Every structure is written in structure tokens, then in C-alpha cells.
Simulated assay, not measured.
Amino acid sequence: MQLNGAMKVVYQAGEWIIRLVYANLLWMLFTLLGLGIFGFMPATVSLFALLRKWIIGNEVESAFTIFWTNYRKEFLKANLFGVMFLVIGLIIRLDILFFQDSSNIVFQILFVLMICLSLLYFITIVNFFPVYVHFDLSILNYVKYAFLIGLSQLSSTLMMIFGSIIIFCLYWYVSGLIPLLCVSLFCLNIMWFGYRAFKKIELEQQK
């Protein structure tokens, strides 16, 4: 049956909601498979890989197959990145706590610098997962690309953040959505704007 207008929009929205609920269940399952702490990063990478395929229109391959393939393939490397980001984040956090309690002018300057560094760290984290599943790079280049793309495509980064805030507010007022879409909707928002940033860069390079 051919759907047009509002009915088509409603059907597509319902289809995406079902996909996201399923993707969220897969994320929780594979996170638990890695005992939580070891499953979080590879499950999140797998979720972004799945969402990327859906965004570019690949709807033929099984979602479970995509998830399982990426989970096994990226398990060690994803956890390596997880440890790296965790250590860097803790160092930045401890430095901020140390410098903010001092009245020394040098420490106050360092405090401001650490706040700026934490913002750059956050921008890199937000863009890391879309970059990781879209490009095939060396370990250091994943971080470099995430940082550079996050800054050069700042409008997309801001939309990722703004969209995440809207989703958080939605969860705040409709808490029943949390078990169904707690991670997948956040990741879809980030992957969607990340993919748009990549396409924009490709168009600029062609020109």
C-alpha cells in the first residue's frame, strides 16, 4: 500500500522507534555480555555502527549480525580507547579540583586553561564514536580526526549537544522512555549530525 503525506511520516517514525528500541536492547545485552565495564565501549561502538548503516540506507543486513560482528572485531580496541579516555578525563577532573581551590594567580590561570581543555576533551568525545565507525584510521588518528572535525564542524557539534539536551529533557518528563530508548536515541542524535558533518566535508573537498 502506497503511503503519502502525514501517514507516511507516522509510519516512518513508528518504524524508527521500533528499530531504536531493538538497538537499545542489543546495546544492553552486549554491555552485560562484557560484564558491564568491559562491554560498555564495544557495545557503544557496535550501536553507532548499526545506526550509521541505517542512516545511509542499509536496511538489508541483520541488526544482530551487524552488532555481533562489530562487537567481536572492536572489543579490545574499543576498551583501549575507553581506558585512555577515562584516564585523561580523571586527570583533567583532578587538576580542575586542585586548581580551583587556590587563590594563587598562576593556579587560577591554570584552572581556566584546564576548563578550556575539558571543553576540547568533551568535543573530542562527542565526535569520537561517529568518526570511529565511519573512518578506517590508526589509533591516534581517530582521536585527531574527532578533535579536528569537532572544531571545524562546530555547528554540527553544537547540534549534537543541543539535541542531547532536548532528549535528556524528554526523558526527564517522560521517564517511561528511559528503559526503551535510554542510549539508542542519544546515539542516533550524535551519529545523525556526525554523518552530516562528514558529508559536508566531502562536498567541500570535491569543490
Score class of each variant (00 low, 15 high):
residue 66 I to R: 10
residue 121 Y to R: 03
residue 35 L to C: 05
residue 116 C to H: 02
residue 57 G to D: 08
residue 17 I to H: 07
residue 7 M to A: 14
residue 197 A to M: 03
residue 181 L to R: 10
residue 20 L to D: 03
residue 61 E to F: 13
residue 73 K to E: 15
residue 203 L to D: 13
residue 135 F to L: 08
residue 26 L to K: 01
residue 10 V to W: 02
residue 64 F to Y: 15
residue 65 T to S: 13
residue 183 V to D: 05
residue 154 L to C: 06
residue 131 V to P: 10
residue 1 M to W: 00
residue 125 I to T: 07
residue 52 R to T: 06
residue 60 V to T: 13
residue 28 M to L: 15
residue 81 F to A: 07
residue 63 A to E: 15
residue 175 S to E: 12
residue 123 I to Q: 10
residue 70 N to C: 05
residue 151 L to A: 01
residue 143 V to N: 04
residue 150 G to L: 01
residue 207 K to L: 15
residue 202 E to L: 14
residue 60 V to Q: 15
residue 185 L to T: 08
residue 152 S to H: 07
residue 76 L to S: 14
residue 149 I to K: 05
residue 199 K to N: 05
residue 146 A to R: 00
residue 143 V to L: 09
residue 66 I to S: 08
residue 68 W to G: 00
residue 133 V to Y: 02
residue 167 I to A: 01
residue 61 E to R: 15
residue 157 T to P: 03
residue 91 I to S: 05
residue 145 Y to W: 08
residue 162 F to H: 08
residue 55 I to Q: 04
residue 154 L to G: 10
residue 181 L to C: 00
residue 44 T to M: 12
residue 73 K to I: 12
residue 190 I to Q: 05
residue 71 Y to N: 07
residue 102 S to Y: 07
residue 45 V to N: 00
residue 206 Q to T: 11
residue 55 I to H: 10
residue 7 M to Y: 12
residue 119 L to F: 10
residue 52 R to G: 02
residue 86 L to K: 06
residue 105 I to G: 00
residue 16 W to D: 04
residue 102 S to L: 08
residue 107 F to Y: 13
residue 197 A to C: 06
residue 107 F to Q: 05
residue 30 F to Y: 15
residue 2 Q to S: 12
residue 135 F to K: 11
residue 5 G to D: 06
residue 50 L to D: 07
residue 171 Y to H: 09
residue 143 V to F: 12
residue 179 P to W: 05
residue 188 L to Y: 14
residue 172 W to P: 02
residue 84 M to Q: 09
residue 4 N to D: 12
residue 74 E to R: 04
residue 180 L to P: 09
residue 60 V to S: 12
residue 197 A to D: 03
residue 192 W to F: 15
residue 122 F to E: 00
residue 201 I to T: 09
residue 26 L to C: 04
residue 60 V to A: 11
residue 40 F to Q: 02
residue 190 I to V: 14
residue 1 M to T: 12
residue 135 F to I: 03
residue 54 W to I: 11
residue 59 E to T: 15
residue 168 F to I: 10
residue 194 G to L: 07
residue 4 N to Q: 11
residue 59 E to Q: 11
residue 61 E to V: 14
residue 38 F to R: 02
residue 98 F to L: 10
residue 23 A to D: 07
residue 43 A to S: 12
residue 85 F to Q: 10
residue 56 I to C: 02
residue 93 R to F: 14
residue 109 I to R: 06
residue 105 I to T: 11
residue 199 K to W: 02
residue 6 A to T: 11
residue 140 L to D: 03
residue 93 R to D: 07
residue 61 E to M: 13
residue 43 A to F: 03
residue 27 W to E: 09
residue 121 Y to F: 15
residue 113 L to G: 02
residue 75 F to R: 14
residue 35 L to K: 00
